[in-house]
Amino acid sequence: MKNRIKVLRAERDFSQADLADLVGVSRQTIVALEAGKYAPSLTLAFKIARVFACTVEDVFDPASVDAAP
């Protein structure tokens, strides 16, 4: 799933480790999320959105997810 985590992180001058600490996951998880290799749970998506003070849709691109049949 495409997302804007890297951009939002850079805007706030957060490192991957900073963001990982803020949402309580490993840096490896942030790396996988930024690379679009992992789609987070709803809980993690909301935590990330809260850190950036925006909505989940502002962080994660719903258009990049295949529509359900």
Binding site: A17, A20, D21, G24, V25, S26, R27, T29
Partner: peptide
């Protein structure tokens, strides 16, 4: 490097 208090590190 993440904090030692990060839940995954603990």
């Amino acid at each position: 490097m993440t904090s030692p208090q990060n839940p995954t590190n603990l």
